[in-house]
Design a protein around this nucleic acid. Structure first.
Length: 770
DNA sequence: CAGTAG
DNA sequence: AGGCCTTACTG
DNA sequence: GCCT
């Protein structure tokens, strides 16, 4: 089903990546980022690009590279070339067809990403080195799963571990200078790297963070060498930056025999930032920046990641020195309660140790006691209703989310329902889907993209609440008709607080968010992103896999234990990760509809989710089947019958709702229009007539809308769920439900629910907050 | 009961 | 200081 | 991270 609560939903995820690339692209040219997606993971789960980008392009071209010199023509050329890239790694079979047709979606999403900075010449991909550097890298995002204790991990109310380290240990907030600081720095920026040349390992910009670093180095005068020893040229590489994801061995193999110039200093990629902070080239602190050959046997230990549970600390400590370090911090910002990092290590000299804090992330969270908002709810409800009344008079455009009367209530309300609706729809269409015209309609597009990246980051982090806060803030920002430039302006907007307001100002003024550099700067960021795309794999599972040493889809297929869902999710990762054109969604719906017709003419269906909200493409297909008089039990039978028929026709390819309970009314599976077409996530739900109204509301989403309207209902002492709107619910002191109460609104009338709640009616397309 | 998805 | 949507299914 |  779908629509809504797909927080990071695969569906939105793609858009996120898309936005990521865009963000970068605006930076200096056409940035791209291809988080992990080394990308197109062969549909059949066959290999993937394993070894990061290590091997790619080691000096196959000659000459200095310039990130900023890309001419439009060049880019164009690359893009063309890129089309074939995906196949590089044994992309068997289907991939081609699939790629072809799903192309429209794909291209828009991740496509250009890896292309832009690709070397013009084809790159050879050396076979993955056996010693996986990755395995030795302790992840900050992921740590030994063992540290997570069971028990109290009460999901929803688990208080964040926000107290100590930044959620993922990825970054410490205190590291990120405030906007003002940044502006300051920018002014007196000096070419501190003038005269030096450097080589990166891997020497490409596939990783967004790496790309930024390379760009920075160039901006400050450094020359990016194409190869280590450029014969015939005078360039001598003075610094070799090694991506922290790579071990010494990895680097050696990457160099394929080429010798490291005697004069070259091998440092990890954080050294450049360190120098920039100081405003000059400083002596690299050995333990922190210098990369040297591993001394301990430990380094060569964890070669076989998949087999090594890589339990806990021992392994983590074996990590090569450069692979772990705690971000240098800058205790600049005064009010930063959470940042109580033990030592203010400062770039001064502190050694990188202190692994503990790093694992904080996994620290189980305490359970918060049951809540009882009863009393508050009541008063709140009153206040709310009152506000709603005001809101219905519709005045302030960005009133407040809870009221659900947010957005532009005026429109729909104003006369000419037809005309205004279409107008609005168009607007949404442009703003939400059309990547191109977006800028025109969304003055804050750039800011939104940046914040969305941060949102994505926090999701990977496992932070339970920040993502929600960010989503609300972003939604609020999207509703703004004018560009928000200062934190003061931003702060006024409901849903945007001081912290995000500051970030908005920073983005507007510097065109970038410092926080992001750190945010994505994690060895497991890409892997995590990749694994999370797998249907059936959530954050916890992904962390476990990573802690076990898995880094690629291939690793998972060979060594990880996969659930039924996950296996299907992996086998069709590409498919499920691809947006479905609206037209195709409709076609799938027609197939179901035709089968329903031969079963019982009274059966009817509706495509829900983002399709109903009018989106041009969807992440999955949600179909609600209803019957005017059928009982729940009858509907259950209808579902069984329907599924059988759909399976027979070859349309339904999988039913991941295994062991559907007696009376099960839902099906989560996958369908395929015809051979060669990609599999699509298909959800079918049977809804009794009396629940139709609520189901329509619920399954149409979007999630932010649903949450707010349901919260509103609760504040009014009601309960709204997919089955209806209820009243008279009684709960005990611990807010445990004692009585469900009675249904207040029933039947197929969706609007009745709005009315009962005192919420102004909004068309499905007006419920978009994403 | 935790995890995942919806 | 503490809430932040609600329900269902899986293993 | 926002809000009451």
């Amino acid at each position: 089903m779908s629509p809504q609560y797909s927080m990071p939903s695969k569906e939105e995820k793609i858009q996120f990546f898309q936005s990521l690339s865009k963000v970068y692209s605006q930076d200096d040219d056409d940035e791209e980022l291809d988080l992990d997606l080394d990308l197109p993971v062969p549909t059949n789960g066959l290999s993937t690009s394993s070894e990061s980008a290590a091997s790619s392009g080691a000096g196959s071209t000659v000459g200095k590279k310039r990130l900023h010199e890309e001419s439009p023509a060049d880019l164009e050329q690359r893009k063309v070339a890129k089309v074939e890239k995906p196949k590089k790694t044994a992309g068997p079979t289907t991939s081609s067809t699939r790629t072809a047709q799903s192309g429209s979606n794909n291209d828009e999403t991740d496509s250009d990403d890896d292309v832009v900075f690709m070397k013009s010449k084809p790159v050879s991909r050396p076979a993955p080195k056996e010693t996986k550097s990755d395995s030795k890298v302790p992840s900050s995002l992921v740590s030994s799963s063992s540290t997570r204790s069971r028990g109290n991990a009460k999901r929803p109310d688990a208080p964040e571990r926000r107290s100590t380290m930044p959620a993922t240990g990825l970054v410490d907030t205190t590291n990120i200078p405030r906007a003002t600081e940044i502006r300051h720095n920018k002014k007196r920026e000096r070419m501190i790297f003038d005269g030096i040349s450097f080589y990166y390992i891997p020497n490409d910009t596939k990783n967004p963070v790496r790309r930024k670093r390379i760009a920075r180095l160039q901006e400050l005068g450094a020359v990016w060498a194409d190869d280590l020893n450029e014969r015939g040229k005078t360039t001598i590489v003075s610094y070799i930056f090694v991506d922290k994801k790579h071990s010494w061995d990895m680097m050696i193999s990457y160099l394929k025999g080429r010798k490291i110039p005697d004069a070259a200093i091998v440092v990890n990629e954080e050294y450049s930032g360190h120098c920039i902070e100081f405003g000059r080239i400083v002596q690299p602190i050995p333990k922190r920046f210098l990369v040297s050959k591993p001394q301990t046997e430990a380094d060569s230990l964890s070669n076989i990641p998949s087999l090594v549970p890589a339990k806990s600390n021992p392994t983590d400590h074996n990590v090569s020195p450069y692979s772990l370090k705690i971000k240098p911090k800058k205790p600049k910002q005064p009010p930063q309660p959470e940042s109580q990092i033990p030592d203010a290590d400062e770039q001064a000299e502190t050694p990188p140790d202190d692994p503990p804090p790093k694992f904080e992330i996994f620290k189980p969270v305490e359970v918060s006691k049951p809540v009882d908002t009863k009393k508050d709810a009541l008063s709140d409800m009153i206040v709310k209703s009152k506000r709603i009344a005001d809101a219905s008079m519709f005045i302030e455009p960005e009133s407040d989310e809870e009221e659900v009367s947010k957005g532009e209530p005026a429109f729909s309300k104003t006369s000419m329902p037809g005309g205004s609706k279409i107008f609005k729809f168009e607007q949404h269409f442009l703003c939400n889907k059309g990547p191109q015209k977006q800028s025109k309609d969304c003055p804050n597009a750039r800011t939104i993209e940046m914040l969305e990246k941060l949102l994505e980051y926090y999701e990977l982090t496992g932070d339970q609440w920040r993502p929600i806060a960010y989503r609300k803030a972003i939604a609020a920002l999207k509703r703004q008709k004018e560009k928000v430039c200062t934190s003061k302006e931003a702060k006024k907007i409901s849903g945007i607080g001081q912290r995000i307001a500051d970030k908005i100002e920073e983005i507007v003024e510097t065109n970038e968010l410092r926080r992001l550099d750190y945010a994505m700067d994690d060895p497991n960021y890409e892997t995590l992103s990749l694994f999370l795309k797998i249907y059936g794999c959530g954050l916890q599972q992904a962390k476990v896999w990573i802690s076990q040493g898995h880094r690629t889809i291939d690793d998972l297929l060979k060594h990880a234990k996969l659930s039924k869902h996950q296996r299907i999710g992996i086998e069709h990762l590409d498919d499920f990760d691809t947006r479905i054109p609206r037209e195709e969604v409709k076609e799938h719906g027609e197939v179901v509809r035709s089968v329903l017709r031969e079963m019982d003419s009274d059966l009817s269906m509706e495509i829900m989710g983002s399709y109903r909200r009018g989106k041009a493409d969807c992440g999955d297909i949600d179909i609600m089947v209803t019957h005017p008089t059928a009982t729940a039990n009858e509907l259950h039978k209808v579902l069984e019958d329907l599924l059988e028929r759909l399976f027979e026709s070859g349309f339904l390819k999988a039913d991941m709702t295994s062991s559907r309970r007696m009376g099960g009314m839902t099906m989560h599976g996958a369908s395929q229009l015809r051979p060669g077409m990609p599999w699509r996530r298909l959800d079918i739900l049977m809804v009794p007539n009396e629940c139709v109204g609520a189901a329509l509301l619920y399954f149409t989403g979007d999630d932010i809308f649903n949450r707010s309207i349901r919260l509103l209902a609760r504040k009014k002492g009601l309960k709204l769920n997919q089955n209806g709107l209820w009243k008279g619910r009684q709960t005990d002191a611990n807010s445990k439900v004692i009585t469900e109460g009675t249904r207040v609104v029933s039947g197929p009338d969706e609007k009745a629910i709005f009315d009962y709640l005192g919420v102004e009616w909004r068309e499905p397309h007006e419920r978009i907050y994403h």
